[in-house]
Amino acid sequence: MNTLTSLLSISLGMILVENIIFSQCLGICPFMGVSKKMDTAIGMGLAVIFVMTVASAVTWLVNEYLLAGLQYMQTVAFILVIAALVQLIEMFLQKMVPALYSALGIYLPLITTNCAVLGVALNNVGSTFAEAVVRGLTGGVGFTVAIVLFAAVRGRLEFAECPRCFEGFPIALISAGLIALAFMGFQGLSVFG
């Protein structure tokens, strides 16, 4: 498989087939937490795309050059790297790109050591640098697709009639499960067979 095909199939996989929320069940906490409103969902999605892409690139480098022979420390080292990195980016943005800083707002520090970001970083082990970056970027896109879809569903749930005991969070969890079932329909989809 040449490079472009492999990158394409990673993109398709991360957005639909192996969607980080609905298939890998990572990052459920921000997914449930900020999907009540469409604008917060979009803000969170953008922040995740941003952090995941940068974190993928940096953790790949760390894994390749710093952790040679120390692979068992991946998890803890990645947490350290990502946390420091996000802090650094936040300070940088606040000074240099205040518009982007205020657009991402609270969501940037919120997802510092989110398991979705960490999960993508760990999945990147063993792939090339380009693959790692693309997986980070499209993983974030997949997260955004999921949270925006779900925010729209939750907007409708507000007005839906459901049994008292299911109101609020339980029915949201059930709906998320149903969307995950729907996403199973993408299983087996692949680029160029």
Binding site: L66, L67, A77, L80, A84, Q87, L88
Partner: peptide, 14 residues
Amino acid sequence: AVLGGSGAVFGLIL
């Protein structure tokens, strides 16, 4: 050493 060292470096950078 690796983790402590990188932690210290990151702390310094921050």
